[in-house]
Each structure stands twice: as structure tokens, then as C-alpha cells.
Design a protein around this nucleic acid. Sequence first.
DNA 1: ATTTGCTGTTTGATGCATCATCTTTCTTAT
DNA 2: ATAAGAAAGATGATGCATCAAACAGCAAAT
Lengths: 230, 230
Amino acid sequence: MAGDEVQSDFTLETLARESLGDTVYTRLAEALIKGRFAPDQRLTIRDLAQSLGTSVTPVRDAILRLIQDEGLVQRSAREVRVPIMTPARYREIRQIRLKLEGLAAREAALKATPADVARLAGLIASNEREIAGKNWFEALDLNQTFHFALAEIADMAVLRGILNRLWLQMGPLIAESYQAGGRLMIEHHYAVLRAVEARDPDAAEQAIVDDISEAGQIILDRLVARSAAA
Amino acid sequence: MAGDEVQSDFTLETLARESLGDTVYTRLAEALIKGRFAPDQRLTIRDLAQSLGTSVTPVRDAILRLIQDEGLVQRSAREVRVPIMTPARYREIRQIRLKLEGLAAREAALKATPADVARLAGLIASNEREIAGKNWFEALDLNQTFHFALAEIADMAVLRGILNRLWLQMGPLIAESYQAGGRLMIEHHYAVLRAVEARDPDAAEQAIVDDISEAGQIILDRLVARSAAA
DNA sequence: ATTTGCTGTTTGATGCATCATCTTTCTTAT
DNA sequence: ATAAGAAAGATGATGCATCAAACAGCAAAT
């Protein structure tokens, strides 16, 4: 039942064996962040299990974890849905991100190595290219990677975990609005890069605050408009 | 198997029916926060199921969720343990708490009703009494309730969820050190109360920052001492 | 005495049968 | 035609059998 590992004798057993449940979790989380599921969409364990070609158990495990992350919500005893973001909730998340990512940017500015700076620069350049090519999925992914990179450079694992969960919650919404932002979504990344390179924590915090505020405003405006319509 | 609900005909069907998995999760989370499990202690699903009188499934569900919260860690494929807090990790959590709870205190000061103020005052008074009586478990619990109350008054559900998880991670450590802090652990709560009552967000943030910094220092000192010894 | 190798045990992962509810659909009486 | 009610279907929760990997003893070899 479990094992049909076709492990070649040549591959090193380097990475920890990932359970099926982990795989499903990762795939569903990615789907959420990339906006593949619409807000309020209902998910059923059996259907997902069928799509993914597993039994219900790993899917159930993954969904339990996603509910714990608040990336999914349990409406009633037998209904799991993609959550609907409210303006109030989005404002709260934005407030929290301002504080947490501000802290991360500040620490990153203090700890960044030249290699870290180069990595950030590379992310911005790639993102610029994808936006120019209108490859919104890739651009969105690179934007997220940039924000996470600051937490990594700051060497703050707990903060990184919190950010991860927040992104999971914002995913369906952001994916929907990213295109509307266009280049504006990474405008402030250059300021972040300069501040980190200059080892200036105050400037780094301010730059990321500006980034989150401005990009967030576009998303919030769209969200408020839609909520008013409904 | 599922249903041996002995639901009296008189009880209102008000609260949502809680699954066995939820019950187990709540009980284990509480045990963690109250420091009933020692750091590095190994937990096995089967043993817990036996203790709790359920099958393995609800326990497995609860443990999956606790691992997601990082309230438990999975060392290897078949080993679940209570995490060991490192000084570096504790410092990071403290930094994060300073920002998040500072934000919560600020918002609470802006939004608090007289009833909210009374609730905070009551929590402090109760805590004072329990400390005087050396009822450390109760005092610890009231301390946590006070910190959570600020997030509730601020009406920040997301922040509250993040705090919850952080507390789960700090639980085993704090429970161990709370006694050492004594009255010092709630010294700054009075300043928080005054600031909230005066609707002064700056003062409220400063007071909670002082509280976390000072109380945290006692815990950190003990943690560093122990880490150095090992 | 220390290492090596075999064997039984422990343990989380996986699949699945079944249950209690909740929905949906169909029937039937007015 | 409408509404009350019954039957059928859908769905997450629960319990459990079984698997493969890890582990613990223990014996044999040097």
C-alpha cells in the first residue's frame, strides 16, 4: 500500500523521505498561494484524493494542517472551503505584516552578506523580466520569494513561519489582484535592496513598509469594491 | 464508534459539536502550555490514545495539528517530541512579541470599552491573589489570559491566532520559569491598564514592551544558564 | 571485550470500511 | 401546483488492520 518507491540505486538518500501527506500538503498550499482555488470554493477530501491519486488519509491530513494554518476554513462539520477575505481581516494582516516584515528587513540589513544582496538583486531582475513578459504567475512567485528572502537573510525562522501562514491566507486574493498592480508591485523593492546593501536598518524598514502599504492598497481597494458590490 | 453522545434533551444544541480530534487537540495544547510535558519528551500516538481513551485517529489528528503549530516537532519519521527552546529562538520570539503585542496594546487602547478595562483590572487582581497564594499554575494562566485579552480588545483575530501559536511554543519553557519571576511577571500590567484606561496608545505599547522585555529577560537568563551548562 | 549480524518489537503512515449527519432528490397527499 | 415527508447520496469522523522503517536485544564471531 505505502511503498512503491522506485528508488534508483544511484540516487543518494540525501533528502528526508517525504510522506504522502507532506506531498499533498505542499501541493495544496502551493495551489492556494497561486490562486488556483477560488475564494469560497468547496473542497472535498474524496475528490481531491481522486485527483491526486491517493487514498483519503493523506488528503485528510493535509487539509487538517491547512485548516490549522487558516488557509482553509471549516464552515460546518462536513464543509471545508477556501476562506473569503474581508476588508477588515486584510487590514489586520497588513498591519501585522508591516510590523513583522519591517523587523525582518531591519535585521536583514544588519546581517546581509554580499551573496545575500546579490540574491535580492537577482530576484528583482527576474521579477522585472517576468512582469515585462506578462508572466503573472512567475512574477507573483518571485514577489513572494523576495519577501521571504528578507526573513531568511534576517535568519528568523519563526517569523518566516508566520509569514508563510499569512501568505497562505492572502493567496487567493493576491493572485487575483497582482496583475492589476503591475510594476508597481515591485517598485519599492529597489529601495529595500539599496538599504540592505548600505546596511541601513531604518531605511530598509521604511522601504518594506512603503512596499507593503502601497501594493496592499491596490489589493485592498479592489477588495473593498468587490465587497461593496456584494 | 463515533456517536455515544449522551446529549441530554435539556441541553441546548448551541455550541458546535466538537470532534474527538478537537478535544484531544485542546487537551494536548493545554498540557503543553501548562508545562505538563517536559522539553524533549517523546510522545507516541498509541500511548496518548490509551491515556485519553480514544483510538489512534483523533490523537494522530491532534498531533499533526500541533506539529503544524510547531508546538511539537517531528525529529525523524517516527519520533514526535516536545521541542527544546534555544536561546536564539527565544530571542526571536521575544522580538516578534514586542512588535505584535505592542500593536495589540496600541489598538486596544484605542478601542477599549469600560467593560474591557474592568476585565483587565479583574485579571490583574486575580493574578495578584494567585501569586500571593503561590498558586503558580493559576497565575501563569491568568498572565496568558491578560496578554490574549489585549488582542481580543483590539479585535485582532489574526494576531490572536499567531500569539496562540507562539505561546504553544514557549509553554514548556515559561511554565518552568514563571515561579522564578514572581510578582515581577505582572509588575508592568498596571501600567498597561492605566494606559488603556487613558486611551493612550503610545503608553500602552511602551508598557507591554517593558513587560515582555523584563519578564522575558528572567526566562532568557535561566535558559542561557541551562544551555551553557549542557 | 567489542563489533557484527540477525530477529522481534515499536511506531507513524496508509488505506479502507463504516457511522452519523447533512443534502439532495423524489414521492405523495392535498 | 405546492409542500410535507421519505428515500438516496454525499461527506467528514472514527476505528482499525497492515506496512515499512527504525529500534532494541541478543547471540555469534573475532
